[in-house]
Structure formats: structure tokens, C-alpha cells
Amino acid sequence: MLKKIITLCVLLVVLAGGGLFYVWNQLTSYMNQPLQIEEPTLITIKPGTSFNSLLRRLENNDWVQPSEFSRLASRAHPELTKVKAGTFEIGPNLTLQQALVSLVNGSQAEFSITFVEGSTFKEWRGQFDRAPHLVHSTKDMSEAEIAQALNIDREKLEGLFLAETYRYTVGMSDLDVMRRAHNQLNKVLNEYWAKRQDNLPLKTAYQALTLASIIEKETAVPEERPLVSSVFVNRLKIGMRLQTDPTVIYGMGDKYQGNIRKRDLQRPTPYNTYTIYGLTPTPIAMVGEEAIAAAVNPDDSKYLYFVASGHGGHVFSKNLRDHNRAVQAYLRKLRARK
């Protein structure tokens, strides 16, 4: 009798062990199955989402095959149950378990938007409208309303954001990015204004920003910026008009069709530096750090003129005679290319 009882106990243990092995094997197969996605995919997890509801969602999306043993996953892998809210990116080469690890331990998916030096606020708004996964909260707002929302005491926002790359996560708004870009602009501008050269013909940091925007539009050659700055600073010191084409173009607005005619140079606008003295009333573009640096620390030169060289840079001159020669040389190069 005792022998039968012992045999029965051994049999029950074997059956139990076999059952546990089967369950564990099924659960392991479930957790190790590859995700059924073909490219990196975003998944947004709302606050309060439970581990089991997340599994059901993955199954309902046909990203994983369901299993009657999935409810045991939380007990077998308690470290994976700390589900975080947010938007995450999961890859096609991950198993279910690897994907869950990335959702628990990984960072939210980030996206980037890059604003180039010399771009305008109008162009920025277009980029914001096209940016994926960004809340477009300012789409129907006027420029003045955006300024008010950002607590900027100006109706015109041109130049008030630093041109660089900004990263954002799902749920952030264009206003959030603008706020960060404006704060970054103020930080950089104040740092350079504090260590500006002596005797500059600039009274405020905002004037330095305005000059930086003109420099930004005049040259894309980094090493030229301080020299271009010196030309404008020299002109401001002697009361000479800046006479820079980008200001004319900005003042023309939508009327600019790719060419500046003589009458455009003669038509007064608040931004036409062929007809006004001094700086424009506002910046004419967004700037990068290098243009700000050049505006407050120009090269020490006697130059008053510059014209395109025809090779990507400019030719600088101290007097009108030399400048006219440089202009004729440039025009000859243009004709030779036709």
C-alpha cells in the first residue's frame, strides 16, 4: 500500500513538473515571438495603462500572436510591468520581451526640426505646419497673438528665435519649440552683448540682433561674417546708408519675385536701407550664434563696400573706385558664364 502511495506521489510530481514545464515553455514562446511589424513603429501609452491591457493591445493590433498563457507574463516577468506613459518607437527586429524592455527602460521617441540661418518667421511657420507629431497650436494665431502667448513684448517676431536644431516629443506644441528657441536666442545674445567691442554704433542688444540678421542674409561664408560686419559698422559710424539688398527684399514682402529693379531700390519702405539711414526697425531673418558674434565683434577694417566675387565669397573695398572695379569684374564673370 505504501509503495502505491509513493508511486502515486512520484507520478503526481512528474505530472506537475511536466505541466509547469509545458506552461513555462508556452509562455517563453509567447514572450520570444518576433513583433509582426516591418518598420520602426510608434506606440503611444496613455497614463494608467496596465501591463495586461498593453499586451491585449499588441495582440489586437496583430503585432503579436495571442496566447492563453499571456496572463501569466506579469507574474513571470514582474520587472516588465512598470509601464510608462508616453510615445515610444519599437523596431521590427525585436521580440515581444525585448519590446517590453524598451518600453519600460527606454526614452520617449524624439523628433527634430532644423531651422537654417537666414530663414524667416514666415518660413518657420511653414516648417511647423509640416512637422510630424507636433501639436500645431499656433496655426490660426496671428503673429501678435503668438508673441502674447510667449510673453514677448513685441508684435513682430522676426529674428527672436535662434536658428538651430530642436528636438521634441509627441504631444509637444510648436509654441513649446518657439519658447525654447526664444530663450536660447536671449541666452546667446545676452552673452555676446555682455562681451561686445567698445565703441560700437549699437545702443541695444536688439540692434545687435538686427545687424546680425543683415550679416546672416549677406553671406553664407562663416569666415566672412566678421568682415561683412565691419563694413556695416564702419558705415554706421560715419552715417552712411547701409545699402544692402536683403533689406530691400524683406521690405518688398510678397511683391518680391526674384529680381530687384532700380525702382525697387528707390521705393521707400521702413526696411529699404537705400532710402533710410541706420538699421532696419526689426531683424530681417533668424540668425545663428556666429552672426551674433560677428555683429558685436567685427573685424578691424577700413572697408566700406563689398560685392560678390563670383566664386561664393565677396570682394571688399575701401573706396568707391575700387568697389566699382570689383563690380565690373563680377559682371564680366557673369557674362562669361552665359
Rank of each mutant, 00 (worst) to 15 (best):
residue 92 P to W: 06
residue 307 V to E: 09
residue 146 I to A: 08
residue 84 K to C: 08
residue 318 K to Y: 04
residue 304 L to V: 03
residue 167 R to A: 01
residue 253 G to I: 02
residue 291 A to C: 11
residue 168 Y to T: 03
residue 45 I to Q: 04
residue 277 Y to F: 06
residue 213 S to V: 08
residue 207 Q to F: 07
residue 172 M to E: 15
residue 158 E to N: 08
residue 107 S to D: 10
residue 72 L to D: 03
residue 34 P to H: 00
residue 251 G to P: 11
residue 314 H to N: 13
residue 258 G to F: 12
residue 164 E to P: 01
residue 66 P to W: 09
residue 298 P to G: 01
residue 261 R to Q: 14
residue 173 S to I: 04
residue 116 V to M: 13
residue 245 D to Y: 10
residue 220 A to S: 11
residue 324 N to V: 03
residue 56 R to P: 03
residue 253 G to T: 10
residue 261 R to K: 15
residue 53 S to A: 12
residue 199 N to A: 11
residue 256 Y to F: 15
residue 152 I to Y: 07
residue 104 V to F: 09
residue 257 Q to T: 14
residue 99 A to D: 06
residue 226 P to R: 13
residue 29 S to M: 09
residue 152 I to L: 15
residue 27 L to V: 05
residue 316 F to D: 10
residue 133 H to G: 02
residue 109 A to W: 04
residue 279 L to E: 05
residue 231 V to G: 01
residue 121 F to V: 08
residue 53 S to I: 06
residue 165 T to R: 12
residue 241 R to F: 10
residue 241 R to W: 05
residue 199 N to K: 15
residue 242 L to K: 08
residue 133 H to A: 02
residue 102 S to A: 10
residue 143 E to V: 14
residue 23 V to K: 01
residue 44 T to N: 12
residue 321 R to D: 13
residue 85 A to M: 09
residue 189 L to A: 11
residue 330 Y to R: 05
residue 181 A to M: 06
residue 22 Y to A: 13
residue 191 E to Y: 14
residue 144 A to V: 15
residue 78 P to A: 04
residue 89 E to L: 13
residue 331 L to F: 03
residue 243 Q to G: 03
residue 12 L to H: 06
residue 243 Q to K: 09
residue 195 K to G: 05
residue 157 L to P: 01
residue 48 G to K: 02
residue 269 T to Q: 07
residue 301 S to M: 01
residue 107 S to V: 04
residue 138 T to D: 11
residue 255 K to W: 05
residue 203 K to A: 06
residue 106 G to H: 05
residue 249 I to E: 09
residue 85 A to Q: 14
residue 197 Q to D: 14
residue 153 D to S: 13
residue 66 P to L: 08
residue 188 V to W: 06
residue 307 V to K: 05
residue 149 A to E: 04
residue 338 K to E: 15
residue 197 Q to P: 06
residue 182 H to M: 00
residue 3 K to T: 14
residue 35 L to S: 01
residue 163 A to R: 02
residue 239 G to D: 00
residue 53 S to M: 12
residue 146 I to H: 04
residue 294 A to T: 03
residue 69 F to S: 12
residue 263 R to I: 14
residue 297 N to E: 04
residue 25 N to D: 15
residue 20 L to T: 04
residue 237 K to H: 11
residue 21 F to D: 03
residue 230 S to Y: 06
residue 25 N to C: 01
residue 219 T to K: 07
residue 231 V to F: 03
residue 186 N to D: 13
residue 124 W to G: 00
residue 337 R to N: 06
residue 101 V to H: 11
residue 179 R to L: 14
residue 263 R to M: 08
residue 2 L to W: 00
residue 38 E to R: 12
residue 104 V to P: 00
residue 237 K to F: 05
residue 54 L to A: 05
residue 160 L to Q: 15
residue 293 A to N: 10
residue 289 E to L: 09
residue 35 L to G: 02
residue 1 M to W: 11
residue 135 V to Y: 07
residue 293 A to L: 05
residue 285 A to Y: 02
residue 90 I to E: 07
residue 264 D to G: 02
residue 270 P to F: 06
residue 177 V to Y: 03
residue 41 T to E: 12
residue 56 R to F: 04
residue 51 F to M: 09
residue 221 V to K: 03
residue 33 Q to N: 02
residue 335 R to N: 02
